[in-house]
């Protein structure tokens, strides 16, 4: 008999509850709860499309069992901003043309956010190392590097973390 339990998650500041078996990953659970912005690319931590922040650090939600995420603060790309009020990273990604097919972008933005929260003024090598777990097949990363550096400058100008 599969062991199931009710799990309450905090997603983008809101409480979300579902009934999940022990083997359910955070990726699967978030998507079941309607958070389709979290993308499935490989289910084994190779591509980064499913990255979310857990207590402020980017993790692959495909490698996280949902039971272990209970009580932690989960942030997806939707939690960062929206079209009317985008996060500086989202604004920079859109304006620099860093999103092509866009499928890697929710994870890419989360990985970049996790970097900038800890290192507000990253050098190019820091950005490269921080994004090496996020595969992109469309952009060659050139405009993604530009977007992260533009957003970092904008955030420093704002003088605070968002």
């Amino acid at each position: 008999m599969v062991q199931e339990k009710q799990v309450t998650l905090s997603v983008n500041g809101r409480s979300r509850t579902g009934r999940f078996p022990a083997h359910r990953t955070l990726l699967e659970a978030l998507r079941e709860l309607g958070h389709t912005e979290v993308k499935c690319g490989c289910e084994k931590g190779d591509c980064g499309a499913c990255a979310v922040l857990v207590d402020g650090k980017a993790v692959d939600s495909c490698l996280t069992l949902v039971w272990t995420a209970e009580g932690r603060a989960i942030t997806t790309v939707v939690g960062l901003g929206n079209a009317q009020s985008p996060h500086p990273l989202q604004k920079a990604f859109a304006e620099s043309g860093a999103a092509q097919c866009g499928y890697c972008i929710p994870g890419m933005v989360i990985a970049a956010k996790s970097l900038l929260d800890r290192n507000p003024d990253p050098g190019e090598e820091d950005v490269r190392i921080a994004l090496s777990g996020n595969l992109c097949r469309c952009t060659g990363y050139t405009k993604i590097f530009e977007a992260v550096s533009t957003a970092a400058a904008a955030l420093r100008e704002e003088g605070g973390v968002r």
């Binding site: 912005e37 997806t76 939707v78 990273l89 859109a94 304006e95 999103a99 866009g102 972008i105 929710p106």
Partner: peptide, 10 residues
Amino acid sequence: DAPGKVTGRT
């Protein structure tokens, strides 16, 4: 198509 993609709404 960019705003929807960067905000996860697409």
